[in-house]
Simulated assay, not measured.
Amino acid sequence: MIRLMKKISFPFHKASTARRLVLSLSVIVLTGGAAGESLTPAYASSPPTLVSSTAASAITPKTLTLKIDGQSFTLPGGISKDKTTYVALRPISERLQLKLGWSQKEQGWTLLGRNTSFTVRTALPSTLRHHYTVNGQSIWGPTPSLVKGSLYVPLRFLLESFSYELNALTSGVFTANKLPMNELTVKTKSFHELTRTSELDVQYPQIDGFRDRTVQDKLNQYLEARVKELAAQGRKELATYQGQYADENLYFIQYFIKHNQKDRLSIILESNLFQGAGYAFPTRFPVTFDLKTGEVLTLQQVAGNHPSYKAIINKEIKELFSKKYGPLSKPFESISDDPLFYLHNNMLVVFFPVLDYTTRFFDYFPEFRFPLSTFQQ
């Protein structure tokens, strides 16, 4: 059963109410230089005015001190009302040695580097939903800011998009380090089905450029099969709605790359349903691959086959669950034999569905992090 919550602010716009079915398949291949992409250099003339403008986030200017890969420097930045740290786009792109230019195709400023493409828009054309596109996927993120003609973006969001690990602020200095990456490229496939009464919007990852084509094909086939299952479930959910317009009946699928290091790849597929006056709680489907074999790894394997891995995890979660997330709807006893988990840098992250144990929606997916060194025998 899908549980609905009352309508809240959400990062997706309402769909158009076209009366015909539109089914499209697009493939965006992204490499360090994004084949076929034409970028106007950042110092060129201003980009054209977009169709519709969206108010940029207001920030209070502040000089940031950063230490990235051992080198210290200052850059113009700012702080938003919700305490998000922003950084000026052009100076940070130069420091990270990323190519910056205007992308007519993406209708925004695009950074290229480290097998990643990152586009930010301060205004949205009528055909686009989000301020950001990362590796071909349109995603929501903190609103960019314009200050005296300079574009500012959230510091953590930008760095993590390019596989940098940003550590906690220490003595006024932000420290970040470049993370190793597997030699592969992520591309985004998408399809879109629109009728007068429903909309299905799907984005999912495919792997390209990996050294072992057999393993690459195995991963892509797994991901495509999983997405087809989720899309089929979405069509069933959409068919149950009795509303009149597609902007009241939306099911969408997106993805997150959580870990791409040392021959392991962790991905989360997330599905969301919006119907009428409410949103269904999102559902996440994590998968961690062994890039040497193409096999899907279990939690036990990721934990190094430690004989007491479940006991270690259970003990920590029992001690922290109510402290981190307040009163529980039911007592926690143990993780299942097939728990939800993913890798993130050197951490194993175990998580639970929304409201499975917690009583507050804003707790979202309760997570518990364990250093992989915890399971060394």
Rank of each mutant, 00 (worst) to 15 (best):
L4T: 11
K7Y: 10
I8A: 13
S16I: 08
T17D: 15
A18H: 11
R19Q: 13
V22I: 14
L23I: 15
S24R: 09
S24D: 15
V29T: 14
E37P: 02
T40V: 09
T40H: 09
V51I: 13
S53A: 14
T54K: 01
A55E: 11
P61E: 05
P61V: 05
K62F: 06
K67F: 04
D69C: 12
T74V: 13
L75G: 14
L75I: 13
G78C: 10
T85Q: 06
A88V: 13
I92V: 15
S93F: 12
R95W: 01
L96T: 07
S103F: 11
Q104R: 14
N115H: 07
F118R: 11
H130R: 11
G136V: 03
I139A: 00
P144L: 13
P144S: 13
K148H: 00
L151F: 04
V153R: 02
S161L: 05
S163G: 04
Y164R: 06
E165P: 04
A168Y: 03
L179Q: 15
P180L: 02
M181T: 15
F191V: 09
L194A: 00
E199L: 09
L200M: 07
I207H: 03
R213I: 14
V215E: 01
K218Q: 15
E229L: 06
A232E: 05
A232T: 14
A232V: 09
A232H: 10
K236M: 11
A246R: 04
L250W: 12
I268M: 12
S271M: 00
L273Q: 07
Q275G: 00
G276P: 01
A277H: 09
F285Q: 04
P286K: 01
V287W: 04
L291A: 07
G294Q: 05
L297S: 11
I317R: 05
K318L: 05
S334C: 09
S336M: 06
P339N: 03
L340G: 02
L343W: 02
L348E: 06
F368N: 01
Q377G: 12
